[in-house]
Amino acid sequence: DYEVGESVTVMDGPFATLPATISEVNAEQQKLKVLVSIFGRETPVELTFGQVSKI
């Protein structure tokens, strides 16, 4: 299970290999909103559970 505030690594898509912090969890739809730090700015990205891995 994923929790808000948890650190994960993006495994898929254009942000693969980047660390991210979970900002929202939708367990019903198996989706997460995460904040990816790009060029010093936090960018919100919506991903599925399968696109991230716990650190």
Rank of each mutant, 00 (worst) to 15 (best):
D1G: 14
D1Q: 14
D1F: 14
D1I: 13
E3N: 11
E3P: 03
V4E: 06
V4L: 07
V4N: 04
G5W: 04
G5T: 02
G5R: 03
G5Q: 03
E6Q: 11
E6N: 07
E6F: 05
S7W: 15
S7G: 08
S7M: 15
S7R: 15
S7P: 07
S7C: 11
V8N: 01
T9L: 15
T9H: 08
T9A: 06
T9E: 07
T9R: 12
T9D: 04
V10M: 05
V10R: 00
V10I: 15
V10N: 01
M11H: 06
M11C: 08
M11Y: 04
D12N: 10
D12Y: 12
D12A: 11
G13V: 02
G13D: 02
G13N: 02
G13Y: 03
P14H: 06
P14G: 04
P14I: 10
F15G: 02
F15V: 02
F15I: 02
F15K: 02
A16R: 12
A16V: 08
A16S: 08
T17I: 04
L18I: 06
L18E: 05
L18P: 01
L18M: 13
P19R: 14
A20Q: 01
A20F: 03
T21H: 06
T21G: 02
T21L: 11
I22G: 00
I22E: 00
S23R: 10
S23T: 15
S23M: 15
S23E: 10
E24R: 05
V25C: 05
V25Q: 02
V25F: 04
V25H: 02
V25P: 01
N26W: 14
N26T: 05
N26M: 12
A27K: 13
A27F: 14
A27Y: 15
A27D: 09
A27P: 10
E28M: 10
E28R: 09
E28K: 11
Q29M: 11
Q29E: 14
Q29H: 10
Q29R: 10
Q29I: 09
Q29C: 08
Q30V: 04
Q30Y: 08
L32S: 00
K33Y: 10
K33G: 05
L35K: 07
L35G: 02
L35V: 13
L35H: 07
V36G: 01
V36D: 01
V36W: 01
V36S: 01
V36A: 02
S37I: 15
S37A: 09
S37T: 14
I38L: 11
I38G: 08
F39P: 06
F39K: 12
F39A: 14
F39R: 10
F39L: 14
F39S: 12
F39N: 15
G40A: 04
G40P: 04
G40N: 07
G40K: 03
G40T: 03
G40Y: 04
G40D: 07
R41P: 05
R41T: 14
R41S: 12
E42K: 09
E42D: 11
E42R: 06
T43Q: 12
T43G: 04
P44M: 15
P44V: 15
P44C: 15
V45D: 02
V45A: 08
V45P: 00
V45F: 07
E46C: 07
E46L: 09
E46Q: 07
E46F: 08
L47M: 07
L47S: 01
L47R: 00
L47F: 06
L47P: 01
T48P: 05
T48Y: 12
F49S: 03
F49L: 04
G50L: 13
G50I: 09
G50M: 12
Q51P: 01
Q51C: 05
Q51L: 04
Q51G: 04
Q51T: 04
Q51K: 04
Q51Y: 03
V52E: 00
S53G: 09
K54E: 03
K54Y: 06
K54P: 07
K54N: 06
I55D: 10
I55Q: 10
I55M: 11
